[in-house]
């Protein structure tokens, strides 16, 4: 049926994007000044490693053999990619990149999604308030707050939050996902520590996204409130509950565009927030891998971040298609 067709079409589009991004990082490494592959190879040779062993080490790290023609390397790379083999890390010698990024991924994904959900719920509520009471001080102050917060750059917010709540008022601990002294496990102590450390970063994500949701919801609700079918529903004597549902469902539709943009923005913001709060997530991994010249790891982290965004966007797109009958027929 139509829904399945749309899903397949969008899924293929997503895969193509992932493919393009993967290829991009492949060729990027080759464009780097002082080809890091040959650099690594020469470094290994310089330590006295026999050539075949050095060659095989580098091919494992980068996922291909350096002396082959580029096209062959490219195909090998893609083949490895299809098997989820992203090579080995240079800074964490011998450890597969896939393993590193997959253990880092949950930190990023859980934080970002929590942040998105919190900002969505609060923002949507604020937007409804701002729209329904737009002629009184309640609505106007809600709008002002949203506009103000929307204008603050994300990392600024994170810095200020970190500074105010860890240094000025020592309310929350600073840095790290949990207290290193506590043994990880499903214990209340550990979980409590996790939660305590997570408050500020999640707040940073949430507050930076809040403004966008509130403003979009406000304009959407205001627009729907003026729609003729709402008046018609009132004139036909529909109950208040039904009318509110009519308004809500229609007002939510434009928010989906905001959702896709917001997800990309949040995941991208992880490079800051994880850096500021010292979380071992993908964003932090990306930043540190550059400093360590660990290019396979950089490739892997970038690819995973982008894939996460693409997948999230795909889900949001599908949700939208499921809700809006006008699109389904197209």
């Amino acid at each position: 049926m139509a829904f399945l067709k749309v899903f397949v079409r969008k899924a293929i589009g997503g895969l193509v994007m992932i493919f393009v991004v993967a290829s991009f990082t492949f060729f990027l490494i080759r464009l780097m000044p002082g080809n890091p592959v040959t650099t690594k190879l020469n470094a290994l040779l310089a330590t006295g490693t026999p050539y075949p062993i050095a060659l095989s080490k580098v091919s494992v790290m980068y996922g291909f053999v350096p002396n082959q023609p580029v096209w062959q390397q490219y195909l090998t790379y893609l083949g490895e990619l299809a098997h989820f083999n992203l090579g080995e890390s240079i800074s964490y010698t011998g450890v597969s990149v896939t393993h590193i990024i997959l253990s880092a991924a949950p930190w990023t994904i859980i934080m970002v999604l929590t942040g998105v959900i919190v900002s969505f719920v609060l923002g949507v509520l604020a937007g409804v308030i701002a729209a329904v009471w737009r002629n009184s001080w309640i609505g106007q102050s809600s709008t002002f707050l949203a506009t103000f917060l929307h204008g603050i750059p994300q990392f600024m917010l994170a810095l200020v939050l970190a500074y105010v709540f860890t240094t000025v008022w020592r309310v929350f601990p600073f840095g790290a996902p949990y207290n290193a002294a506590i043994q990880p496990g499903w214990t209340p102590a550990f979980l409590g520590s996790l939660a305590k450390h997570a408050v500020l970063p999640v707040a940073a994500y949430a507050i930076s996204g809040y403004g966008g949701w509130a403003l979009t919801m406000r304009s959407s609700v205001t627009s729907v409130l003026g729609d003729e079918f709402i008046l018609a529903a009132e004139l036909r004597g529909l109950t208040r509950g039904l009318r509110l549902r009519y308004i809500a469902r229609n007002a939510f539709l434009p928010l989906f565009t905001t959702l896709t943009l917001s997800l990309g923005f949040m995941f991208g913001g992880s490079v800051f927030i994880e850096s500021i709060f010292d979380y071992p997530g993908l964003g932090n991994l990306l930043t540190t891998s550059i400093g360590a010249e660990d290019y396979p790891l950089m490739q892997g982290a970038f690819l995973l971040i982008t894939t996460a965004v693409i997948v999230a966007n795909l889900l949001a797109d599908l949700l939208y298609t499921a809700i809006d009958p006008r699109i389904r027929r197209a």
Binding site: L28, G268, T287, I290, M298, F302, T306, V309
Partner: peptide, 19 residues
């Protein structure tokens, strides 16, 4: 355009800074 919109810009900028 969609590609550029989807790929998060900061990670992209970080990656570009290497070359």
């Amino acid at each position: 355009t969609d590609l550029f919109l989807t790929v998060p810009s900061f990670p992209l900028l970080i990656v570009l800074s290497t070359i």
